[in-house]
Design a protein around this nucleic acid. Structure first.
Lengths: 215, 215, 215, 215
DNA sequence: CATGAATGAGGTTTCATTCAT
DNA sequence: TATGAATGAAACCTCATTCAT
């Protein structure tokens, strides 16, 4: 049965009181649990409310509809990954470009490994049109961050860092997500991580080399 | 309402009479049309039958369930892309490695450009668990082809071409799909294509270089 | 189109609020009405909901599926008959065995007469496998009761009262159901009732006699 | 899904040619097989045709509809049981009444034992209104036979043998069917058979005795 | 006569969301 | 605010039957 998630995805109200925050968190936590234990196909608002220990009415007190709830869950997950990458990037801001790149790649891979279960269970939800917005916004925010970082590097002066960052992010996410969905165990294969680093460094090197050649 | 596509995905009956083939084709064509005009969320078996101009019973005569129908449509689309890439690869089998790689990248991008509409409309369906199998099988078949091709190259002797091919395919699909879904128009940007080629060549060069360095 | 009633036959939810009880009763009453006015072949969940004046959703709030609903209706009917027989048996517990037997036979016949309409309309449902469980449990409970009653009688000391009760119940139900289904009017023929009593008493007398003869 | 079998139940055409008879028999045999291996719920005309190795069209060549097919299967089964009883009755036509009765009871029980599987699988079909007619006709034919037989006996002169036969048949069928459906194994328990004989003889004795007493 | 593709009414069930209590 | 009973649109799928080939 085709889903159709198209509705305002913003929370209905800002949970101001402590009690509210608790409820919201409980609902989100319950959503994740249902997602991982029963799968997206069985993720119904009723089931979420049940596992959260609140009434269905309360769920709708804080989320205008099912889509908003799912979007929020997805958003939190993506943000966590983005945060991990940002942290690594900040820690290696002073390093040479290759070291920085490698740090970022490894941080991304590690963060994904740590949350494979969520990635896997969330996957079907991503496709439900309307959530893509959330994904896109986080992804683009991440690419923008990276772009800004690359733009400060002399080696990449004159390059379209926005494009480079966009491709880098998507090119890394591709293989990582593929393995995460196909067989999570293969995500921790050292050779896989090494090749991802090689991929990223090779790309940067090529761009850099081309720049040099041109100049 | 959560989707749940989990069922035998193989066709129910081999159309023997001419009439049957017509029906099957009409149904698949109708599915694509509904997908593109109304979206996955409105892709119901009833609507498909209607647009195909056949009875709902006829749909179920050839597809055991909705999932099988969608899987077949997805499979055909993926196969078309794979075929385009294979053709290009065959045409440049004798070229130097970089030329071959570039040809493949461009062929993949072109094929995707030619079917953006389908890619976009099909996307939500992909996530519906159970279809992943189809995607995976075609993707892996593609990666296997590429791997075999790379394995014949002296430059990559001793390398894990299976891993390289897997990463290459996913790393290219990542950015391409991202743009296809985000804004199809940006897919034809020449700079984008150039960078994809750079990405692929840089990766191969890095791997090759590493090999050389090691040796 | 073959029916197939095979599913959890227990109610889904205990109606806690007063409103709920009303709904449940309305649904069960509606089921009986549809059964009697339109027949089992037209007993659809939709029709039941309509006649009950509730939404189809409410039906499924209290019965996990069509089978459970029907099972409950059948159960209530059988229990009513069983209760009538039990009451009669209790009232004649002190009587001589023949009087007790006669009282039971007449009570059973009367109860059946009073609910011929239900018996007739329910019949097709009984065959729907899966409900048999309900029938069996009530029937066996009735036979067990009777067996216990017979076991206290000196005349039947040493006899297999469980077997006797089982046969007695089924032997009476046979002709009664046959007439109920064939032509309800013939159920009230005095000669019929008399012969049923004769059948039961003759059986008991034979068993008793055999016992005596053996002893 | 409620069934609704209400249609002309007579075969569409008399199979005159040998080929026809073969087809008809194959279809009926296939129906029995599907009934026993897959259950009444999965007894579809398509499946029957498949197992019979003929096209669905051919099935409809000889049976106007599904109901007629099932009715014929049921009829043949009931006739087989009736025939067995008739044969036994004929063989003991000259015996004393009790011996005759016992022979009939045992023959009935034996015949049922030999076809428990059919009895069990056919049961749901019986309820499908419209087949009752078939059952009734065979049952009444059997009761009529028995009635005629009893009417020749001096002991029962003046008695309503039609009533007696009707009750006897139904009173025996009750327990037998009950055990057949509940647990076929218990059908062959010797004590069960003995009690059935006792039941029948006790009934006749009571009636006879009453007659004597009255006279 | 045989075949089997096509038909389509109609059945069961789910679940997001509302709103009276 | 919290509750949870009620709602009902809408989806999937089956299968008896017909009829052109």
């Amino acid at each position: 049965m085709p889903t159709s998630i198209r509705a305002s995805q913003s929370p209905r109200k800002q949970p101001s009181q402590a009690r509210s925050t608790i409820t919201v968190d409980a609902v989100i936590e319950a959503t994740l649990q249902v997602l991982q234990r029963e799968g997206y196909a069985r993720l119904t608002t009723t089931r979420v409310a049940e596992r959260a220990g609140v009434s269905i009415g309360s769920v709708y007190q804080y989320f205008p509809n099912r889509a908003a709830l799912i979007a929020e869950v997805v958003r939190r997950h993506l943000m966590a990954v983005a945060l991990a990458v940002d942290t690594a990037a900040a820690a290696h801001a002073g390093d040479a470009l290759p070291r920085l790149i490698e740090a970022i790649v490894r941080a991304f891979l590690d963060a994904k490994c740590a949350s494979v279960a969520i990635t896997r269970s969330i996957q079907p939800a991503l496709a439900d049109i309307g959530i893509e917005t959330v994904v896109r916004s986080v992804t683009q925010r991440g690419a923008a961050h990276l772009s800004a970082l690359l733009a400060t590097r002399r080696e990449l002066r004159g390059e379209d860092t926005a494009l480079i960052a966009e491709i880098l992010v998507a090119a890394l996410a591709g293989p990582v997500n593929e393995r995460a969905l196909d067989d999570p165990a293969r995500l921790t294969d050292p050779a896989f991580g090494d090749h991802l680093v090689t991929l990223a460094l090779g790309y940067i090197a090529s761009v850099t080399g081309r720049t040099a050649a041109r100049g």
